[in-house]
């Protein structure tokens, strides 16, 4: 069974959205998805960059009202 985890990291200055995502991925199974909300523009760039580097899968990256919703699938 695959799970979808949601992390609301809006207004999270430290450790911040990417670090929250890295931490959450450690407790997910391959194939599970994580949706992270971030109000920080930098993360909308950093998260996809890191996901590509490590080899997970970027499912979507959408700008909403005042924040970004980024969905990533754990690939390994």
């Amino acid at each position: 069974m695959t799970d979808k985890i949601k992390v609301d990291a809006r207004g999270a200055f430290c450790p911040g959205p990417l670090m929250e995502m890295i931490a959450a991925l450690k407790h997910m199974n391959v194939g599970d998805e994580i949706e992270i909300w971030s109000s920080d523009k930098g993360s909308a760039k950093d998260i996809p960059e890191w996901v590509k580097k490590v080899g997970h899968e970027l499912v979507s990256n959408d700008e909403r009202e005042g924040y970004w919703s980024i969905v990533v699938r754990k690939a390994k």
Binding site: F13, G16, M19
Partner: peptide
């Protein structure tokens, strides 16, 4: 460091 800079706090 895990992310793309030296510390979580910008």
């Amino acid at each position: 460091y895990p992310i793309g800079r030296l510390h979580a706090l910008e």
